[in-house]
Design a protein around this nucleic acid. Structure first.
Lengths: 233, 233
DNA sequence: TTACTTTTGTGCTATAGAACATAATTATAA
DNA sequence: TTATAATTATGTTCTATAGCACAAAAGTAA
């Protein structure tokens, strides 16, 4: 993990959600201990097996959290958008990172030492509850995901990924194009399938007029149909 | 959910882990609000879609947490052993239950209203941190599980389930027989496969002298080999 | 006991999806 | 520019595993 150049950023406007829960004194602690780091596209933020030291908050860009599985296959576990916190689970569980994180595109991250975070939340119950809620939400998503990835067929899994990407990163001004451009391989890793099947299924969707493709731009044409495909597996 | 008869139980010896974190006053609150309930074998404790009201702590017995997937197939998400807490995630996340829970065998459960729990943890930071840790551990397990269930082959998945059951419920006096008897169907739901494949693979393991079977009793003969099968998928 | 249901075991078939090969296209670098 | 690498696309083969059928065994009830 390379330390990029530091930078002064107004944390109050950036650490959304969390900032409101803090006293002025606690905010000062954060200000003194948080650092900002930039990551280039595809740069690793942390690696599977690393000892967790900092909580991270994505301020700008897109980050993917992934895991290496059997035979060098990768599985994208979750995608992070601004402003979302990540990288804290392993520390709380007293474990090394079970996942890796890398910048999907050029990204800005705010890092706070976990020791500071734990000190704060042991004194501030609202902050503690904030983490309880985040973890609870993520655990629910993980449970859903397990069933979806294991029981749905390829079409259902891909449809679901597309809807997930829409919900996470939104659409462009045209109100149809996904606001994230990813390689077919990433789409495959997100949907638990091989790259060729992602490509094939994607072009089936084009034939069925559910989506339209222009390179890595994916335009959702018939969202209802996509939802139907996702539901019925 | 049927209310079984109440009962007086010494919570201090039973609510392990959590009890030590509380003040005498807080303990009194728990004593006044916790109730004990018995569940018969296969009885539902809560259902997918229910609105969560209580945190549960399994005092005796075994509980399975599961999810209905595509086409009526069930997936066992996790297994609970004494003394473990469950049923609180959905409330924290402000959601209806995403999973159902049922007694795997005759079980005793301690129930505490979630409102009480939240009140307590908003005043007691150690209690809050207890939940943060539990959720963090469970989220890690869920992430691991996703990759295992999606990427490993049947043999690897079944081997892993057997090892998981051994770690969770331990062995009998002979030091080899799993201390839980489950139907082939449950083993299948736990390992994400059909019942026939669970049966088949199980008897392959017998042929390979990795395990021995006697009805629902599973004796682990060669744990190292089982670990190897689990690792290599 | 008998009748009936559930669980377990086994063989056969069908198929979703992986694995592989190869070409076309698009980036990236020199 | 040309050369090289990465990504996308598509066709073919192969196999793990689901799905089904049916029999045997075990458990449950009348």
């Amino acid at each position: 993990m390379v330390k990029n150049h530091k930078e002064i950023i107004d944390l109050s406007t950036n650490l959304k959600g969390l900032w409101d829960l803090l006293s002025e004194e606690e905010r000062e602690i954060l200000r003194n201990n948080a650092i900002i780091q930039h990551f280039k596209k595809n740069e690793m933020i942390y690696c599977e097996g690393d000892v967790p030291q900092e909580m991270m908050c994505l301020l700008k860009g897109k980050v993917k959290i992934f895991k290496e599985g059997v035979g060098g296959r990768y599985q994208i576990i979750r995608m992070i958008k601004p402003v979302q916190y990540f990288g804290y689970r392993a520390y709380f569980a007293n474990e090394a990172y079970l996942t890796g994180a890398s910048a999907f595109e050029s990204s800005t991250v705010c890092l706070v030492p976990m020791k500071i975070v734990v000190n704060l939340l042991l004194r501030n119950n609202k902050l503690a509850y904030f983490f309880i809620q985040q973890l609870s939400i993520d655990l629910g998503i993980a449970d859903e995901r397990t069933v979806n990835l294991t029981q749905k067929h390829i079409r259902g899994r891909l449809a679901e990924s597309l809807l997930f990407l829409k919900d996470s990163y939104g659409l462009e001004e045209d109100g149809a194009t996904l606001n994230i451009y990813l390689a077919r391989e990433d789409l495959a890793n997100l949907s638990n399938m091989t790259t060729s099947n992602a490509i094939r299924t994607l072009s089936n969707f084009v034939t069925e007029r559910v989506i339209a493709l222009d390179g890595r731009r994916i335009k959702i044409i018939d969202e209802e149909k996509l939802k139907k495909i996702s539901k019925l597996g």
